[in-house]
Design a binder for these strands. Structure first.
Length: 277
DNA sequence: AAAACACCCTGCCTGC
DNA sequence: TGCAGGCAGGGTGTTT
């Protein structure tokens, strides 16, 4: 579910609530989040219990809770498709599919809820050793300029859509914002990445614009996403092509098309995004 | 090297 | 109203 704008919105909402709070306990469900790889749940206790949250950061689609001592330790969280992260009073009932709970001093709980259990939590001792973070490419929001993006595109024959979704190449974009960025840049999703090299500046502008718009509207809620306060995002109404198959292109009126690449839906305007080989 | 595909889950929507 | 089938924004691992 959550891509960079959703994760950024959650981090901004979470940071003022949990910064400076001491973690007193860590609890996990009997069916924890270990679908993709085993999670070192006991390590979570070691790295957080008795410590204070020094800050909350985002890297790509990952959320990082930083411990106060030592500063380079903490917990890395990925929300998968349906993950939610919220702070709620410990006295209140836990939602179904609550899998990890951090008990905060003062009676609140930071709760990780994830129906599909595609999410992921890992202690970082230190954070630099967490492979998922180490493998990430530059951040989609601030990690590139036109020159470095052009260099990254050079020689890559994979479709530009696959390039933008590959977190090792550029971190933070998911299926929704990739469709939106390619539409804004006027680039057909099947175009080989290398062929977009000379349009790197336009592509970068488009990526930045759709991400900034998503953040300004506090994320895209199609179904599951809510921010740290439990509020839906407003960006769904601003989507130009995603989920709008057969509806008119907002720019030229041509029917938006849906195609499937590598098992994922892509939406584009065949006129504004003509194929190029 | 890279593309295609199956897979990990649950919930919701559609159509019969 | 019930049920089967399709679909979902992510990431990984295997096969071609």
């Amino acid at each position: 579910m959550p891509e960079l704008p959703e994760v950024e919105t959650i981090v901004r909402g979470l940071e003022p609530i949990v910064r400076g709070r001491r973690i007193e306990s860590v609890w996990w469900s009997r069916r924890p989040l270990h679908l993709l790889r085993p999670i070192d749940l006991r390590g979570l206790r070691a790295v957080l219990v008795g410590r204070t949250i020094a800050g909350v950061r985002r890297r790509g689609k990952y959320i990082i809770l930083e411990s106060d001592r030592p500063r380079d330790e903490g917990v890395v969280i990925h929300l998968g498709m349906t993950g939610r992260l919220r702070v709620q009073p410990a006295a209140g009932a836990r939602a179904p599919h609550t899998h990890v709970v951090f008990g905060l001093a003062g009676g609140d709980e930071l709760r990780f809820v994830d129906a599909r259990r595609f999410g992921w939590v890992e202690p970082g001792r230190p954070l630099a050793r967490v492979a998922a973070l180490a493998d990430l490419g530059p951040d989609a929001l601030a990690g590139f300029d036109a020159t470095t993006l052009a260099a990254a595109l050079t020689g890559v024959r994979a479709p530009i859509k696959a390039f933008l979704l590959d977190q090792r190449r550029i971190a933070g974009l998911g299926n929704i914002y990739v469709s939106e960025a390619l539409f804004r840049a006027g680039i057909h999703p099947a175009t080989p990445a290398d062929r977009v090299r000379r349009r790197a500046a336009e592509l970068l502008e488009a990526v930045g614009a759709v991400l900034a718009g998503g953040i300004a509207r506090r994320g895209t809620t199609l179904r599951d996403y809510v921010d740290a306060d439990g509020q839906r995002g407003d960006n769904a109404a601003a989507l130009q092509v995603y989920g709008r198959a057969s509806k008119p292109c907002p720019s030229c009126g041509t029917a938006i098309r849906r195609r499937v690449d590598a098992g994922r839906a892509t939406f584009f305007c065949p006129r504004c995004q003509p194929p190029r080989r």
